[in-house]
């Protein structure tokens, strides 16, 4: 089907600017091992959006173990913000482990 490619903001160009999300601090990286259960990505994303934190990079890869996946996340955060993110991620039932990547 050849449907028109219309952006909902087409007539409101000033709405096209993204609102800048600022969480301050340096780029941090986490690797989160999860059960590949429904909604896992949404659960992880909510940890950031509820605080107004940004995610700069996200990768979702199946893990060697069946039914598991590795989520690689990069985001700007200071130490306290990082701690908060980790604490909240730990509350997700389907999160198995969290490792802080060495280069961050």
């Amino acid at each position: 089907m050849n449907l028109p490619q219309r952006s909902p903001n087409q007539d409101l160009p000033w709405l096209d600017e993204a609102v800048f999300l600022n969480s301050g601090g340096q780029e941090k990286q986490l690797c989160v091992k999860v059960f590949r259960n429904l909604g896992i990505l949404a659960r992880v994303a909510l940890v950031f959006s509820r605080r107004g934190f940004d995610i700069s990079k996200l990768e979702f890869n199946p893990a060697h173990e069946e039914g598991l996946a590795n989520l690689e996340l990069s985001f700007p955060a200071n130490e306290t913000q990082m701690e908060e993110v980790i604490r909240d991620l730990r509350r997700i039932v389907d999160v198995i482990s969290i490792t802080i990547s060495s280069d961050s």
């Binding site: 259960n37 429904l38 909604g39 949404a42 659960r43 909510l46 509820r50 039932v93």
Partner: peptide
């Protein structure tokens, strides 16, 4: 999602 401990 944000108001439960877990949902399915």
């Amino acid at each position: 999602l944000p108001v439960v401990k877990h949902n399915e």
